[in-house]
């Protein structure tokens, strides 16, 4: 694979732009997390969040969450105009504490999932999803 100087410059610029993607609504994210956890610490293990690295269209992005032993899982999109995505509460007949859905992402951003465990503890996972801006589609 060979790069011309121009290619390398352009790609370097792309990398710089990616690293500067603004993360909006951080106050709203903090408020939503606070409301869900009451400010408790969150473990980095115990919850799994599956999301594509690159979404072909931000309008329909498949995600899945799995947190064995959780009573509820909240999902937030940190870079959307409003961060709320979905909250799953698992009842006595839930076969697992896992679920999948399809979500909207306004741009490249972090998707955050927080699980509330049966013992009152919390766990958090996050995943960056790059949202491409299409050409024509098809």
């Amino acid at each position: 694979m060979e790069f011309t100087r121009r290619d390398t410059l352009a790609m370097g610029l792309g990398a710089a732009v990616l690293s500067m993607v603004p993360f909006r609504a951080s106050a709203a994210v903090d408020a939503a997390v606070e409301a869900f956890t009451g400010g408790a610490d969150m473990a980095a293990t115990g919850i799994e969040l599956t999301a594509p690295e690159i979404a072909e269209n931000g309008n329909t992005v498949p995600i899945a969450v799995n947190a064995p032993g959780a009573t509820a899982i909240m999902v937030l999109a940190a870079g959307n105009p409003t961060p709320g995505v979905v909250t799953f509460k698992f009842g006595p007949l839930a076969g697992s504490q896992s679920a999948s859905t399809r979500i909207r992402l306004a741009g490249t951003q972090d998707v955050v999932a927080i699980a509330k465990m049966a013992d009152g503890s919390f766990a958090r996972a996050a995943s960056t999803v790059k949202v491409t801006i299409g050409g024509c589609g098809g």
Binding site: E56, N57, N59, T132, I133, G134, G135, C136, G137, G138
Partner: peptide, 20 residues
């Protein structure tokens, strides 16, 4: 073409549900 992957423009899959 920009971030989009150009196909052969086949129409055997129409009508098409677009995520867009």
């Amino acid at each position: 073409i920009r971030a989009d992957h150009l196909s052969q423009g086949q129409i055997n899959g129409f009508p098409t549900y677009r995520l867009k």
